[in-house]
Design a protein around this nucleic acid. Structure first.
Lengths: 158, 158
DNA sequence: TGTCCAACATTGGCCCGGCCAACAATACAG
DNA sequence: CTGTATTGTTGGCCGGGCCAATGTTGGACA
């Protein structure tokens, strides 16, 4: 961990961009730790959630939906398939495609993950009283969804 | 850029951790782009700001102050020294130390960077009306500074 | 004084996440 | 039938955050 002796310079302290960064760092730490309890990472959760909500899809479809890169998608799908959380079957109508379907085990897993994620959110927001939490969520939402265009996927930095 | 067709699954949409992430991603994109106009990255700004505020220090001191790793510190110091933004002189009292001092050119550079950073913050917060911006900053501050212990440096993920 | 341990600066490299490029197989339009 | 596009897959790149080993110097202490 970090053992910063002395505060960061004043110029940086109240900087909105820095606050957002710190918040995200904290959030990610908490969420990652929570998901790790199920031996899983964020991509796994995103993928299961997408499958559950939108139903079976090809990997390419999932890539488009989630913003996860093709290469990484392969790995995550492999991984989840190995845990019987989803099924990978060739599409009879288009033999290029793999059709990915969530399994009952996958749904169970997802429920478990939902619980972990919810707890993580709680932990993340713990420093704020409930009223302020809602307000923060509202502000962040409005900050992040400008007009609705230029949406963000799951992955991506650029 | 990302071309997400279709929204991310509902489960993820309003998630505070995800909102924080999106916000940070946006903020970083904007800030990095701003600093790039001066051919500089975040560490450079952090280092110059630290030097300006706390005065000359050894690299180890700067490492403690900023949370930047030793190895990376060397690189940043090299870089800024190469631009005459700071001076690296052996400490006569302790010859293990390099004493790093900001130069006039460094101060000028810092002023320029301050401008760029300020503009970036403006751009980042643009979607919100001024009153909400303050509120957001307040909330984030309280969220991120729990008690004051377990402070964060500049770098760090863990 | 000599010895041993701690702090410093530097080099080199590891890991991980996000990304791109190349490829073979398949679909499809002309 | 030919050329173009899409799909899944492999391999690798890059940058940021991090750790380890090295050589140098200080300082404590026997």
């Amino acid at each position: 961990m970090n053992i910063p002796e002395g505060a960061p310079p004043r110029r940086l302290r109240g900087l909105p961009s820095r606050l957002a960064n710190q918040a995200a760092l904290t959030a990610n730490r908490i969420v990652d730790r929570a998901l790790a309890q199920a031996g899983v990472r964020r991509y796994h959760y995103a993928l299961l959630a997408t499958l559950e909500e939108y139903g079976p899809a090809s990997q390419a479809g999932l890539v488009r939906r989630t913003g996860i890169d093709r290469s990484d998608m392969v790995a995550v799908v492999n991984d989840l398939a190995g845990r019987d959380c989803l099924k990978r079957a060739p599409d009879p109508e288009d033999r290029r495609r793999n059709i990915i379907t969530i399994t009952p085990a996958g749904r169970e897993q997802l429920i478990e993950l939902d619980r972990l994620i919810a707890a993580a959110q709680e932990e993340f927001l713990a420093p704020l009283p409930p009223a302020d939490r809602e307000h923060l969520i509202d502000l962040l939402t409005r900050l992040v969804e400008p007009g609705d265009d230029q949406r963000q996927g799951i992955g991506s930095t650029r």
